[in-house]
Design a protein around this nucleic acid. Structure first.
Length: 560
RNA sequence: GCCCUCGUAGCUCAGUGGAUAGAGCAUCCCCCUCCUAAGGGGAGGGUCACACGUUCGAUUCGUGUCGAGGGCGCCA
């Protein structure tokens, strides 16, 4: 398999060297032109050289082209515009991608970028969702789940050893509130009642928990199992049961969303194992703390924060950011030199604090560690109006509502298909539409169409591996092949930029090329070599669609 | 007031230091005697919020203004 981009870059390098151009300050950039008339690859090298060489770009481009070594892959080279050098590949080298896809199958598009110098995958942890067990997962968690899981898949595809982690708080003020709410429901106190806890959770799901608790049910979550004792006055028993119950429910939601975590971390464990206390002691020892007004402060302003932060309140308890620092120190100590936290944008202020706390420990943790991917808010629309409530949860739209309404595939696609840092409007009507309005079905349909043609042909897809591809010389075939050949770059860039939405966009374009090709091409034609070549091309496209959909966690159906 | 993200077609959103700024929906016109029309082809629709700067070149980078959302607690 020849990496054409690298090959052309080498040619340019050689040409520049021959005309003794200084490339030390210049990075040779090869891009894929938007328009076919600008060739298959294009470079602005001549423009970059114009200033240092004090010559006009077109003249430099001409000299570069003259100095280019011969290549068996290139049909012609042109100068265009202000001094672009455009490379046109010959038909044969465009066709190599089809054979490459057959050769690599499910692995096509994967790479080893995440391997260390010894060729071993490096560890990376992706922490996402991390919802506290105080209610069902909501749309925001859903966005985090879709983006986080897709990030994890992208990192796996680029050679990283990924651990998916879920962190939650099973103690503290919010959980106390949960406990009080369940206890109130156990005693038949309704939300209208004055004695219902003021900051209690009012959703119907609290009633379900209370019923299950009184019925002494047993609940099993991914990380625990609890049997209720039925005594509503036993706050500790209620707490433990309620947490397990909601963890179980979240597990069901995540399962329906086809997401699985490798590890669960509990905030309470950071206390019980002494990690919080050790972190506090280490921070005090580092000399970055001081006492003021009965509280213990950390000088986070030494590390870019706009004001110092309280670690230990005057009443004696720690503020939330202390266990946060302890938690991240724990991640570091578990050997994750790379950690990505996928969270809602409302957590953005914690970034500076967590990093500052880690810096204050003076343990040579890089100042930009860990990485964060923050997603903005999701607005749910239905029937042209914003949906704000779910009966069950009371105050927000749940992930389960979306999955029930539009299915797992469409929910995952819609939540991952937008840049994380822009606000998202989730239109239930669009996601549910079983028509061409819906990009999920558009992509899946392309896959299913190919399956259908291959099924009617009836041969072994594997036998297409070695067919002669030279009949593939139509413009729409060239376009499709070009699209397929971009896939590995798209995957690599998406992983590097932590941008799953790039995969969704690519798939839409790839599906579009396929549909277009499908519409003006007959595949099961008389001429055997043409038929086989075309079938090979669509089979390769099928593979790309499948690989890409898999990165999004969306199914690639054979039939629709 | 300070911090973060965003501002691109009527709507939902891509995109990029470069060559006429793209897609889907919506509107209008075409295409199934033929492998899935859940499809394709075409038309219209844009001062890339605004201003100034850097650059050979800015929608993209910088600064400022305006607008939207979020965050600014000895809550988590």
């Amino acid at each position: 398999m020849v990496i054409l981009k690298a090959h052309i870059s080498d040619l340019l390098q050689a040409a520049a060297t021959q005309m003794s151009a200084d490339l030390s300050q210049i990075n040779i950039v090869l891009e894929r032109p938007k328009s076919a008339e600008h060739g298959d690859f294009s470079t602005n090298l001549a423009m970059q050289l114009a200033k240092p060489m004090r010559q006009n770009p077109r003249a430099i481009a001409e000299r570069l082209i003259k100095a280019l070594p011969q290549s068996e892959y290139i049909a012609k080279v042109e100068i265009a515009g202000a001094g672009f050098i455009n490379f046109f590949l010959n038909a044969q080298s465009k066709q190599t991608v089809v054979a490459d896809i057959f050769a690599q199958g499910d692995d096509f598009g994967r790479n080893n970028a995440g391997h260390d110098v010894n060729g071993k995958p490096q560890k990376v942890q992706v922490e996402f969702v991390s919802a506290n067990p105080t209610g069902p997962l909501h749309v925001g968690h859903g966005r985090g789940a879709a983006v986080g899981d897709c990030l994890a898949r992208l990192l796996e595809a680029t050679g990283w050893d990924v651990t998916r982690e879920f962190y939650y708080n099973d103690a503290g003020a919010q959980i106390d509130n949960l406990t009080l709410s369940v206890q109130a429901r156990c005693k038949g106190i309704s939300t209208d009642d004055a004695s219902f806890p003021e900051n209690g959770y009012r959703g119907d799901y609290i009633v379900d928990i209370a019923k299950a608790f009184l019925a002494k049910e047993t609940v099993v979550a991914d990380d625990m199992q609890v049997t209720a004792n039925g005594d509503a006055n036993d706050a500790e028993a209620v707490r433990i049961f309620a947490v397990a119950y909601l963890r179980h429910e979240q597990d069901l939601d995540l399962k329906a969303f086809q997401i699985k975590f490798d590890t669960f971390s509990l905030e309470s464990a950071l206390y019980s194992t002494g990690k919080v206390e050790n972190t506090v002691q280490a921070l005090i020892a580092s000399g970055k703390t001081y006492e003021e007004g009965d509280a213990l402060w950390l000088k986070t302003t030494d590390f870019g924060d706009d004001k110092d932060r309280v670690m230990r309140k005057s009443e004696g308890g720690y503020t939330y950011f202390v266990p946060d620092v302890a938690y991240h120190l724990d991640k570091w100590n578990r050997g994750f030199k790379r950690v990505i936290n996928e969270q809602g944008a409302d957590h953005h202020s914690t970034i500076t604090r967590v990093r500052a706390g880690l810096q204050a420990l003076n343990m040579n943790i890089p100042s930009g560690w860990p990485d964060y991917v923050l997603h903005q808010m999701v607005t749910v629309m239905h029937g042209g109006e914003e949906v704000k409530l779910s009966k069950r949860a009371g105050s927000y739209v749940t992930l389960r509502d979306l999955i029930d309404e539009v299915g797992c595939d469409a929910t995952r696609y819609f939540l991952a298909a937008r840049r994380a840092d822009s606000q998202l409007v989730f239109d239930i009507d669009l996601a549910r539409a079983q028509t061409n309005d819906n990009p999920v079905y558009y992509i899946q349909y392309a896959h299913a169409r190919i399956c259908s043609v291959l099924a009617q042909w009836g041969g072994e897809t594997n036998s297409l591996k070695t067919v002669n591809l030279s009949p593939l010389n139509m413009p729409n075939e060239a376009k499709l092949m070009q699209r397929l050949s971009e896939y590995p770059e798209v995957v690599n860039d998406a992983a590097t930029d932590l941008a799953p939405h790039a995969i969704a966009n690519y798939l839409k374009e790839c599906a579009s090329d396929l549909h277009s090709y499908y519409n003006d091409t007959k595949f099961l034609v008389e001429d055997e070599s043409t038929k086989l070549a075309r079938l090979a091309l669509i089979a390769a496209t099928q593979q790309i669609l499948k690989n890409g959909l898999n990165l999004l966690g969306v199914s690639a159906p054979q039939k629709m």
